[in-house]
């Protein structure tokens, strides 16, 4: 009988490992730090090397004005209480909490940075999952706020978002000063993703502290670009491009901004179920193209993706 060969690629590179969260033994208060990355092959090919488990971060917002209602309907009872929201994610089985300090946005609530930092601290105190924190989207204000967050969370090894091409020095210095990791954001382009990592490395940030976010475009609004950009990043990393060997984070929550995800239409089935699958589908594409960490908004998509990760890894 013929023997079908397993076409295992001999890659010369490997994705590095980034740890998020410090346990008490390491000077933090997280119950279990998380390791991201470590893959030595294309995603979910066990014969090439799976690396660390892909993780799911549940999104918590400190201000929900302007967020599509349906997307956070499942959290309506805790929508004004980031601590309870985070605790709910833990019950639901999220691996991490992703706290987005939307309240900081000067075009929205324009809350003072100190208030946002207080929110971070109370979430940190109440929920012992590893934490990632984003600002409100205004470069200058975020730079200052993230510096405060970095200081306030010293020792916890938080994942701070986000370093961008034109705004990376502050956050990089703030993260390094307190031993945090950070998100290196780039806009849908392999070369930009690489350049971002080079800029950070040049600034003194070690790549073991960097998780890249190459911008995951949602299903129906450019998913195919992200899918290919991610695959190309992963391929280049495996071929030995050191500057791309950082774990990858994909934020799925923008899926809810897509009209078709949530529009009420009798012929399109239940809107919330459809929305959750919209987010989950974006997540599946992210996973298969190389994501190590996903940020999700809806409990149902967390459930789908959690099961998918275990299924795909054969666990």
């Amino acid at each position: 009988m013929v023997e079908v060969p397993i076409p295992k690629e001999k890659w010369s590179g490997k994705i590095g490992t980034v740890t998020i969260g410090n346990s008490p033994a390491e000077g933090g208060s997280r119950s279990a730090p998380i390791m991201l990355g470590g893959g030595s092959g294309m995603p979910f090919l066990s014969y090439e090397g799976l690396g660390h488990k892909q993780r799911l971060a549940g999104e918590v917002l400190d201000y929900t004005e302007g967020v599509p209602e349906l997307s956070i309907a499942a959290f309506s009872d805790v929508a004004n209480d980031p601590v309870a929201w985070a605790a709910r994610w833990k019950e639901l089985g999220a691996d991490m909490i992703c706290l987005k300090l939307r309240s900081l946005d000067p075009e929205g609530k324009d809350a003072p940075a100190e208030d946002a930092v207080a929110t971070v601290l109370s979430v940190l105190k109440a929920v012992d999952l590893p934490l990632m924190v984003y600002g409100g989207g205004n470069t200058e204000k975020d730079a200052n706020a993230m510096e405060l967050v970095s200081n306030a969370c010293a020792g916890e090894r938080v994942l701070l978002g986000q370093a961008e091409e034109n705004a990376y020095k502050s956050i990089s210095a703030a993260a390094t000063a307190n031993g945090h990791a950070l998100i290196a954001y780039s806009n849908l382009d392999v070369n930009l993703a690489k350049q971002m990592n080079i800029l950070l490395a040049d600034f003194g940030t070690k790549l073991e502290n960097v998780v890249m976010d190459p911008l995951m475009a949602a299903l129906g609004v450019g998913l195919e670009y992200s899918y290919s950009v991610n695959e190309r990043i992963r391929l280049a990393a495996l071929m030995g491009d050191r500057m791309l060997q950082t774990p990858m984070c994909c934020d799925l929550t923008s899926s809810w901004e897509t009209r078709e995800a949530t529009e009420e239409n009798a012929a399109w089935g239940d809107a919330e179920e459809r929305g959750a699958w919209w987010e989950a589908t974006t997540g599946l594409a992210a996973l298969l193209s190389g994501a190590d960490l996903l940020i999700v908004r809806h409990p149902r998509s967390l459930e789908i993706l959690k099961d998918a990760i275990e299924e795909l890894r054969g666990e």
Partner: peptide, 23 residues
């Protein structure tokens, strides 16, 4: 279920797009 069919069909549409001929 149409709630599943729509994301599934759109995923296919996205993945099978010609990368050199944008949608």
């Amino acid at each position: 279920d149409p709630a599943h069919a729509l994301p599934l069909f759109v995923l296919r549409q996205n993945i099978y797009t010609d990368p050199q001929v944008p949608i």
